[in-house]
Simulated assay, not measured.
Amino acid sequence: MAERVRLIDVAREAGTSVSTVSRALNGSDLISPEVVAHVRAVAGELGYRADKRAQEFKLGRPLTVGVTVPDLTNPFFSEVLKGLAAAARAGGYRLLIGESGEDPAEELRLVEELVDHSGALVLCSSRLNRAGLERALALPVPVVCINRTVKNAGVVAIDYRAASRILLEHLTGLGHRRVLYVGGPATSWSDGERRRTLRRTARALDVTLDEIEGGWAGHHGYDAGPTVLRSRATAVITFNDLVGVGLLSWLHDNDVEVPAELSVASYDDIPIAAYARPPLTSLRNERARLGELAWQQLTARLAGDDWPLPDLLSPELVVRASTGPARRRARIRTT
């Protein structure tokens, strides 16, 4: 196996000192652009790779950010991770990612394991209860929460209160007076935000809102189909697009016309929403931007600043063919 190329090897080949090579590779303003270009060209030719462990020792902290997500199969989280990873990479950091499988106990285990290898933590849509979250925030590294409001930590979130009002006002504007919400995981902070806002908005608009338990994946929406069909609702809001697409699939399989018999709307506007049949009305949000903002909050904290104010992103309603004017339900089906 070939020996690792060292700074001294690059310096010898470039005809300069080790300190000059180090500064050039780290982007120091003390080195001229010409020397920087020369040193980096030589380093590339020799196959030099920076020693991350040495950099971490110099900084006194790992150049790794630990990240927890509930479900890596959900495109929402993969896009958040893309934004976070790109920003972290530009800052010289890397991500160490753990999936909890929607299990709060597994998430807490991951947090306590990741902290041993990370200089900071990002909890994405954390399912931890209050006690678990307090344990996470008591760890000796800065923590940013995405889609979860907490104190003494960074906070980046979608404004689900505004989102829920927008969805319900869209449906009532189409004449719907009875709406059903197919909920998400009981441990989800954003599901609680949705439910509370939908209830308040329904009261203000004099609309009947019914709620049933759902979940977070396509099969949860499909499984909810019979209950949805037995309801008296003319419109349905689902916890996320995966649940919404699953419900649309069941309605199609059972010859329920959408939106003629039932309108369906949802949250997140992941790519599949536009290709559902019919295309799903959904609330678009900047998922990659959530990751970028989380990194900005971490950067400020790692630099010794106080936590910035929470970043709230406003969603945008994308109206598609799954919602339409309310019509009288011909019958309440039992199968």
Rank of each mutant, 00 (worst) to 15 (best):
V243T: 13
T334D: 13
G192Y: 02
V179D: 00
D241K: 01
A90Y: 04
S314V: 12
R230Q: 05
R165P: 12
L309F: 11
P62S: 05
P104V: 09
P278E: 09
A120R: 05
L205V: 09
L180W: 00
D103R: 03
L63I: 08
P104Q: 07
R130T: 14
I158M: 01
V144D: 12
T227E: 15
R320Q: 10
R53Y: 07
C124A: 11
N26Q: 13
V228H: 03
S118K: 03
V65N: 01
G47S: 04
V182E: 00
L174V: 05
T68Q: 02
L110Y: 02
N74M: 06
S266D: 06
G47Q: 12
L209F: 12
P325C: 02
E99S: 15
T334P: 04
G101F: 03
L209M: 09
V36W: 00
T281M: 12
R328E: 14
R230M: 07
A273N: 04
L139A: 06
S78G: 11
G47M: 03
V67K: 04
T299S: 10
S231N: 03
F77E: 14
G101L: 06
R165M: 06
I270T: 15
C124T: 15
Q297N: 15
A153D: 11
S100K: 02
W250D: 04
P75T: 04
Y267H: 11
S188M: 05
V155P: 13
P279F: 11
G173N: 09
V65Y: 08
F77L: 09
L128S: 10
I8H: 14
N129G: 14
N147S: 14
S249E: 15
Y267P: 15
I212Y: 01
R287D: 09
G66I: 01
I166K: 07
P259N: 02
G246R: 00
R301Q: 09
G83Y: 08
G119N: 01
E261A: 03
V144Q: 02
Y48L: 08
G324L: 08
E286G: 12
G214E: 06
R284Q: 09
I146G: 11
D253H: 11
P140D: 09
L242S: 10
G215Y: 03
G184A: 07
W307Y: 13
L121D: 05
L108T: 14
D306W: 01
G66S: 10
V207A: 04
I97A: 05
G92W: 00
G15C: 04
R49L: 12
M1N: 11
D241Q: 08
V111K: 07
D51M: 10
E193T: 14
A87K: 12
D103M: 05
L128N: 08
